[in-house]
Amino acid sequence: MASATLKGRKDGYEVQLDDAASFADNLTDLGGLLRQVHEAQAALHEDQANFVIVTGRRLLTPDQEIAVRALLDPYPHFQITAFKAAVMDAHDLSPLIRQTHVPVAIGVIRSGQERQFDGDVLFIGALHHGGVLKARGSVFLLGEAAGVIHAGYPDDAEAVVVGDLTGATQVRIADMVDIVDQANTHLTATSFAYVNDLHAIDYSECINLRQMRPRLYAQMEE
């Protein structure tokens, strides 16, 4: 069986290169396919054709992509619109994971202890009085929080703190501090903290989070 197979698409063709075959075979078979397409198109008095090259679990190196493109040189009206693989380079993947994935931290932060996170964090456990939880991004809390929560450290005022903050000592976002006091009537178990237009820490109900921080919401949806 040929290691390159052709499929028609609305906007052109999709060529699947069998990842179990050798790349050399892929090239040979793809060359054959292109010739056939060229002949078929000529019969129909058409010369334009777009190709998406699908490589399955084989990730092409830049050199391999060049080799594939070179096969199209004899047909100036053919064009590759995309290379698609089912796999990704680990190096490219990790920043993507960091961007879209909220790490979960479980434990107890005790008096005098400080835990820092590089992006957003979902913290499950207990933040004791005198303990500090710091994140560059937003903080999502599940559990009792009696210490200091610092989101958006040091300067991201878009960050929010979600969770029951009624027992917390302080909520900090970027360079702002709010001393949580028991008399704070805006604060409930279902509110979240954010920085408002006047550059002050304010509280709103969780149901408003989507509308107030759409970017955060989109990220969670991904």
Partner: peptide, 16 residues
């Protein structure tokens, strides 16, 4: 008392 609890919490963290 809370003051003793706070010190105990600090010490537990160090011991851990």
């Amino acid at each position: 008392e809370l003051s003793a609890l706070s010190d105990a919490d600090r010490v537990i963290g160090l011991i851990e």
